[in-house]
Design a protein around this nucleic acid. Structure first.
Lengths: 140, 140
DNA sequence: TCGTATGTAACAAAATTAGTTACAACATCG
DNA sequence: CGATGTTGTAACTAATTTTGTTACATACGA
């Protein structure tokens, strides 16, 4: 979803877009978008301003925003490493396997992020444009 | 969790282990384990027998079970590619971005699986043993 | 044939995520 | 300055997913 929002922002390069517009585009609620934008702001991927006639826009060129950055901004790091597993203190295997699994999964996640780091927002845009299905006019 | 179960099975190499025992080890319910074992059976990673004095064991040596196989057996493939997004037919961007995102995410997932393919169950076991914290005696 | 364990269904509970409503803070325009 | 429009945020509800529970038919081994 984050990518979807950023893609729309990239289309409107430069212009500020309101959360209401984005919500319409993604077909959800403005608040959901705002929550998402907060994460993207913290990662300095978007630049949001309050007040009348304001909104959000990309903080830098689409070519300088990798999907790995987006991923890290949105996912809370512990994606699936330790999904709040029970303490299960009764089994020694359980206790010592956790550290091992964490190590393995962070390695796997790193591998994924390396792959995502190779793709930027403008790659996504170009890919969409190339698919032809999508005209430049964005409804709404 | 799947890895946890398989690790216990690897410890008990050869012996059949009941779902009740495994449930105790992971600190959950036998039915949860059985559901998990069904997926592992379909992937031919474990060999389960019904009836009295039976249970499950690894279908092959721990060194021949990669974590990528486990991952694929357990996760339903569409891990996070298309999490049942709304149809949102009103926005053309939405419609054509989906295919693009799927492509990107399957690529990322492939990268992760390549990483996991490089690690086997016996690597995990060894890693656990090396951590020292865990004696060979598994409680319960 | 008896005991034990799986396969499976049906359902309850808990956790997560998405969505809603409401409102204060605040920038911009007139 | 004051009206307007938009974000930030809280509190709450709803929907979905995951996890756990109970129950029982089925099947295997001794």
């Amino acid at each position: 979803m984050a990518v979807h929002v950023l893609a729309v922002l990239a289309y409107k390069e430069g212009d500020r877009v309101t959360s209401r517009f984005l919500a319409g585009s993604v077909n959800t609620n403005p608040v959901i978008i705002r929550r998402l934008l907060l994460a993207l702001q913290r990662a300095e991927l978007v630049d949001t301003r309050k007040g009348a006639r304001s909104g959000s826009r990309l903080a830098r060129a689409p070519g300088r925003i990798t999907l790995a950055q987006v991923f890290r901004a949105v996912e809370h790091a512990d994606t699936f490493a330790t999904p709040a597993r029970k303490p299960n203190a009764d089994c020694p295997v359980g206790n010592c396997i956790i550290a091992t699994l964490e190590e393995i999964f962070t390695s796997a996640q790193k591998a994924m992020e390396r792959d995502l780091a190779g793709k930027t927002l403008s790659d996504v845009i170009e890919h969409i444009r190339a698919s032809g299905l999508c005209s430049k006019t964005k409804g709404r």
